[in-house]
Design a binder for these strands. Structure first.
Lengths: 195, 195
DNA sequence: GAGTAAGATGAACTTCGGTTCACTATCTAT
DNA sequence: ATAGATAGTGAACCGAAGTTCATCTTACTC
């Protein structure tokens, strides 16, 4: 049952070009980025775009999936680092800072995803991220740095609303305020974690 | 220079009907709510709608303005209550809970405002809300309930991203988490303020 | 190096929703 | 009661953006 033969080389190349262009254009011009614009940016005709992604919704979903995978990998990397003796709170702080940044960049992309139908998020990647995050939280609680009642859902809840269209300074402040609610540290301690 | 004579009675009536219908339809069907739909819901023809609001953006802006005014009034009412001996933290908590609720309801409206051009927010109402909020924060800090470094901008920053499409329980949890970052209280104290 | 299936092209089509405007109805000042 | 401005009506207009498809190209197979 090995029927579907390998995709053509140029098809693979184009798929990547389209995905990159889509991310870039949507980030730049918001959900209003037209299929024509994206195609042009990718150096491809509209028809090609539709061969790879039958609908605009599918295209955006694919872009979001890339992002989700990225977050999952970051979470798992943070957990790995625990083995090297790093402190869980610090890893969580860094991870969340990273996610906040990434989310800010992908602001428009996620907005576009909402505008169309919020879609089949990559369940697998989401699960991996959740597992890694749970381990980090547990470690942090064992250290006495994270409030006992904090759950993975809390993190999701807070970061699903991370400010995206604010300047970097505001985003940093937001992160600081939110972390105060999760950790047992005072605000200054958050800003300058023991090195 | 008293030239513009009083608007006709039916015009005033229709304006209100349109505003109500717009809020309702946008809340219901999101930013996609068509001008035709809104007009129909208001029991009016499209043309009438355009007489009152030359563009869809203007219409949405007007709806948002109503909301802003509402928030400003709530903030001022909270400040008034300080005179009656109520505690500032509690007033702030209640106010923020109220805003979170109101924002959840107006979720789609604000989304619509973004989709079109984020607009001339009612500067006056915003200023009034800011002044009232500043007074509340100051009082809370004097009581020792609110962290010294908290500012009005912090509140704006946090609540500009209040979760809107989450179920009530999640919104309550979110509020609790965020308040922990603002007050000197522990989480349980927030949930059950001294009566 | 043919032959052929997979892929690419882009002009044209369709849909959809905001907006217009010539016309009619209604209110209000005299 | 009447005039005339003010407001309301809704079919038609228009442009934008997603999507299709008949045709041409190109990469892989034997």
């Amino acid at each position: 049952m090995a029927q579907t033969r390998a995709p053509r080389a140029d098809a693979v190349r184009n798929r990547k070009k389209i995905l990159d262009a889509a991310r870039e254009q949507i980030t730049l011009h918001g959900p209003d980025a037209g299929m024509d614009e994206i195609a042009a940016a990718a150096g491809v005709a509209v028809g090609t775009l539709y061969r790879h992604f039958p609908t605009k919704t599918d295209l955006v979903a694919a872009v979001v999936a890339e992002y989700t995978t990225h977050v999952a990998e970051a979470a798992e990397a943070a957990r790995e680092r625990l083995a090297s003796g790093s402190r869980a709170v610090d890893e969580i702080s860094d991870f969340l800072a990273h996610v906040t940044e990434a989310t800010a960049t992908n602001h428009a992309v996620k907005a576009a995803a909402r505008t169309l139908g919020a879609d089949p998020v990559d369940r697998d990647a989401e699960a991996r991220a959740g597992a890694a995050l749970a381990a980090l939280i547990q470690a942090g609680q064992a250290d006495g740095d994270i409030h006992q009642d904090v759950t993975v859902d809390d993190i999701y809840l807070l970061f699903s609303t991370a400010p995206t269209d604010q300047p970097p300074a505001a985003r940093a402040r937001w992160l600081s305020l939110v972390l105060t609610g999760l950790t047992t540290h005072t605000r200054t301690a958050n800003a300058k974690p023991a090195s």
